[in-house]
Amino acid sequence: MNVKLSLTVNGKAVAAEVDPRTLLVQFLREHLRLTGTHVGCDTGQCGACTIHLDGRAVKSCNLLAVQAQGAEVTTIEGLAAPNGDMHPMQAAFKECHGLQCGFCTPGMVMSATALLKDNPKPTEEQIRAGLDGNFCRCTGYHNIVKAVQSCAAGS
């Protein structure tokens, strides 16, 4: 039996009827066509599907869409300013070349923004530990950490 779901995604109210099996990432990508959130491992390990659920960075492949009932969801598409200006973290990733193939980047950026919200001036060690739920299979961690440091220094 389908379930009525209403939530806010990137500031907009969304209402839908979903099969309760629908994963949150499926709902975002396939129902709302917000394909910036990536499915990497689909087993809750790689963090490519990281989004913000009521301000907390979580893995949307390991949650049901119905668990976001009434919640505020932010995806990578919702980070930039309405006029298109990049979020400072996105700008820092661009500036520091914090990506190679780019597949993990949306999840990295979502995790990194949540990390700085909790700890605005993290040490390098805290950044590496704080991003341990996100894998970069290009192993581009060095510049990713630099991007987070640069964003923290600029804020």
């Binding site: 893995k59 995790s111 739920g133």
Partner: peptide, 9 residues
């Protein structure tokens, strides 16, 4: 426990 995202859920 786990990683940051797991701890948030």
């Amino acid at each position: 426990i786990g990683d940051r995202q797991v701890r948030a859920a």
